Computed example of a mutant assay.
Amino acid sequence: MFSLKAALLWTISDFPAYAMLSGWSTRDGKACPRCAGDTKSCWLKHGRKFCYTGYRRFLHKSDRMRKDKISFDGKMEWGEAPKLLSGMEMLQQLNGVLSEYKKEDLKKRRIELFDHDKLQFWKKKSIFFELPYWANNLVPHNLDIMHIEGNYCDNLLSTIMGLVRKSKDNLNSRRDLEELGIRKPLHPIRKGSSLVLPLFSFTLSRVDKDIFCKVLKEMKLPAGYGSNIARRVHDQSIWGLKTHDYHMLMQQLLPIAIRRVSPKNVVLSNVFR
């Protein structure tokens, strides 16, 4: 007979579940729990969603991407990465905003959301803080990178293949570029009563899509490396992949497949490296 004791080291979840576990709202303009109140964001009028900027602050100060205005929001980035809050600092904020994790506290907090001097994005006090050691954990919450990588790769493939309903390149996104005043060659062009979208450098023609899918379909992979990707390629579209398949595509296969059909600047870009 012995006493078994357990300790919760950290949680691993996707981004929506992060909000449930940590108590930080991940839906509004301050959705990044790492940057917290120092999150940089802007509202996209046509896409009707928040766009989060300021991520170049985490790069080294000598990184050339800090000076790149064309590829980003039209501005150079010289800011410093925000300070990471410790567990004790989070607890102090929570004690000042929410005394307990109750729905009544959440309703009261929503009334003050329009007062920017008192703007808070804690929606509840996590029950994990009842653990005596939780405030001292260095990394209490983790994001499931495989889940995020799968979603990102799915959106990337849909945009490259030009799938109408799943592509992130649409009329609303082009209108937002025009609204922000960046990437002028991609702004919608009005011809008569209709709008024409200029082609991106990564836009694939029907022949290019056939070559791209053929490369993935005819790849010979080692046994046990992953599922049979050839079965997931269907008439200029790719669907039904598992999370590990998306990981292989992002890390190794996609840069090889895209090399045959895209210009050099796309192949050498950070997306496919």
Results as ranks from 00 to 15, higher is better:
Y101E: 09
R109W: 06
F129K: 05
G87R: 05
L249C: 03
I256H: 10
L186I: 08
H234T: 15
R174K: 14
L195I: 12
C32W: 03
L94E: 00
L171W: 07
L8S: 12
Q251L: 03
L119C: 11
F129D: 01
I256M: 09
L85I: 09
L131N: 07
P255G: 05
L8C: 15
E130N: 12
L157D: 03
F58D: 02
F15P: 06
E130Y: 10
L91D: 00
K242P: 07
G224M: 12
K61V: 14
P263V: 13
S86N: 06
I256Y: 08
H187M: 09
S62Q: 09
W10F: 15
Q251R: 15
H244W: 07
R260M: 10
S62K: 15
G74L: 04
D210C: 09
K75N: 08
M250L: 12
L241A: 02
K184M: 10
Q236C: 07
E80C: 09
L44W: 02
D68P: 07
L180E: 05
I160P: 03
A17W: 02
S41C: 08
R66I: 04
Y52N: 05
K40Y: 01
K103I: 14
R190M: 10
V266L: 08
A81N: 08
T203I: 00
L268F: 13
V233Q: 04
F114P: 00
K242I: 09
S205M: 05
L9H: 14
K264H: 13
N172A: 07
G54F: 05
F200Y: 11
S99W: 00
Q120I: 06
S86Q: 11
R110D: 02
E112V: 11
P188C: 07
I189V: 14
K108Q: 11
D210S: 11
G47D: 00
M248S: 02
I148T: 03
M161L: 15
Q236G: 00
N155D: 01
S194H: 11
F50N: 05
A7S: 14
Q92N: 08
A6R: 15
K102F: 01
R232M: 15
G181N: 01
L59M: 12
K49A: 03
S71G: 13
W43A: 00
F58W: 10
L106C: 09
K209Q: 04
N172V: 00
P188I: 06
N136G: 13
I189Y: 06
P16Q: 04
